[in-house]
C-alpha cells in the first residue's frame, strides 16, 4: 500500500468515502453474524447471566455508550484549560521534536 500511495499522493485509502462506507458495512455485518452465531453455537456458561440471549453484545454496546456519556459528564466536572497548572514553555509544536530526542 505504502509505495503506491507515496507515488500518487492523493489516493489514500480513506480519502475515498466509499472505503469508509465499506468499513462501516463490514462492521455491521460482523455484528450481525456474531449475534446469529450466539443462537447457533451452544456456549457452555459459568454464570446465569451469560445464558441471556445476546448478553455479551448488549453488554458491550451498553457499556461503551454509558462509558462515553459518563466521560462526557466527567468532562464538565474536571476539564480545565491547558495551562491550569501554570504555563510551561511548550515543546516546539511543528516539525520533529528532535531537540529532546537526538541530543
Amino acid at each position: 500500500m505504502s509505495d503506491k500511495d507515496l507515488k500518487r499522493p492523493k489516493s489514500h485509502l480513506f480519502d475515498n468515502p466509499k472505503n469508509v462506507t465499506r468499513v462501516i458495512r463490514g462492521l455491521l455485518l460482523l455484528c450481525l453474524v456474531l449475534v446469529v452465531l450466539d443462537a447457533v453455537i451452544h456456549r457452555h456458561t459459568a454464570h446465569p447471566w451469560e445464558k441471556v440471549f445476546a448478553f455479551y453484545p448488549m453488554y458491550g454496546f451498553v457499556a461503551c455508550v454509558t462509558l462515553v456519556l459518563l466521560a462526557k459528564g466527567l468532562r464538565k466536572l474536571v476539564m480545565r484549560s491547558d495551562d491550569y497548572y501554570g504555563r510551561f514553555e511548550e515543546p516546539p509544536e511543528d516539525g520533529p521534536a528532535s531537540r529532546s530526542d537526538d541530543v
Binding site: I24, L27, L28, L30, C31, L34, V35, L37, D38, I41, R43, H44, T45, E50, A54, Y56, P57, M58, Y59, G60, F61, A63, C64, V65, V68
Partner: peptide
C-alpha cells in the same frame, strides 16, 4: 481457545466498536 470464549469476546468487542461508530 474454545468457542464460547472466542465468541463472547468477539461479540463484546464488535459491539463496542459499533458503539463507537454510532456515537
Amino acid at each position: 481457545y474454545d468457542s464460547s470464549h472466542v465468541l463472547a469476546q468477539m461479540q463484546l468487542l464488535a459491539f463496542s466498536a459499533l458503539a463507537f461508530l454510532s456515537l
